[in-house]
Simulated scan of single mutants.
Amino acid sequence: MARRFDHSSEEICTMALHWVRQYLEEDTAENLSLRKIAKGIGYSPGTLINLFGSYSYLLLRVNADTLDKMSVEMTAGLAEISDPQAQLEFMALSYLNYAMAHPQRWRLVFELRLASDEDIPDWQQQRIDALLTRLKAILSELNPDAADSALEQTARVIWAGVHGISFLAVEDKLFSPSHLNNSEMISALIRHYLTGWISNTLAQ
């Protein structure tokens, strides 16, 4: 067991988060525990609670890192894509690809439940808001006359659909015919939804 002064607080946090990320590449969050993390890095559970505030907040830090990595993959190539619809499809497919490549880390983002007395920290909410802001900006290019409330709703609806397909793909429960694939389904969802959304806006 490491002594408390072997590493700084920042180093212990980094060690814990790295250990959890590595663990989730091989096993599920359901089999994870604060005690396992503490044992894995050679510190006590109490030390981790003191540093992170709670087990949930420790996992939330892991989720923040996951969102950062997804954001990088989803936006890295956008500057090279001029068509807004193609940008949305690129982001959606990047999201799907991350979910398929790192299913346990991806699941934890949506399965983690905070205690009733624990609020989502600003640093996590800002990450979520940044994704929606990016989506709304792209949708605004496609439909400049849309109100902000319509952009907000459309961004959430599209991402709910993308998330649903991604979830079923990760769980292997799409039951789709062999001639269909997950990427084509996501692209079809975006194309058809956007066509209807833009048409309805113009008709109002």
Rank of each mutant, 00 (worst) to 15 (best):
N181V: 06
A150C: 05
T195W: 04
V170M: 14
L131E: 09
I37M: 04
G53T: 08
G77I: 06
S44P: 02
T154H: 01
D6S: 15
R35L: 10
S94L: 11
E111H: 06
V162N: 05
L139T: 03
A155Y: 04
I165C: 00
D148K: 04
C13H: 14
T47W: 09
R134Y: 04
K69C: 05
H7P: 08
L51C: 10
C13M: 15
Y193R: 07
K69H: 10
L51A: 09
P103F: 09
R35P: 09
T201E: 08
G161N: 08
L151I: 07
L48N: 03
P103G: 09
K69F: 10
E11H: 05
G196K: 01
F90H: 15
L32M: 14
L93Y: 08
A115S: 11
S149F: 12
I120H: 05
M100S: 08
Q124Y: 11
D27P: 02
S199C: 03
M74Y: 08
G196D: 05
A130G: 07
E80K: 14
D83C: 04
E118W: 00
I158R: 01
T154Y: 01
L88K: 02
N182H: 14
P121L: 02
A101L: 06
A115Y: 04
S178V: 11
P103L: 05
L151M: 07
T66M: 01
L60I: 00
K173C: 09
L135A: 06
K69Y: 04
E11F: 10
R61L: 04
L151S: 05
R113E: 12
M74V: 07
G77A: 13
F90S: 15
F167A: 08
I138W: 00
E26L: 14
I12E: 03
G164S: 10
N181L: 03
T28N: 09
R105Y: 01
E111W: 05
A137S: 13
I158H: 02
L114W: 06
A150V: 07
N50E: 03
I138E: 01
A150R: 13
I120E: 03
H192E: 10
N143S: 13
Q125I: 08
P45R: 02
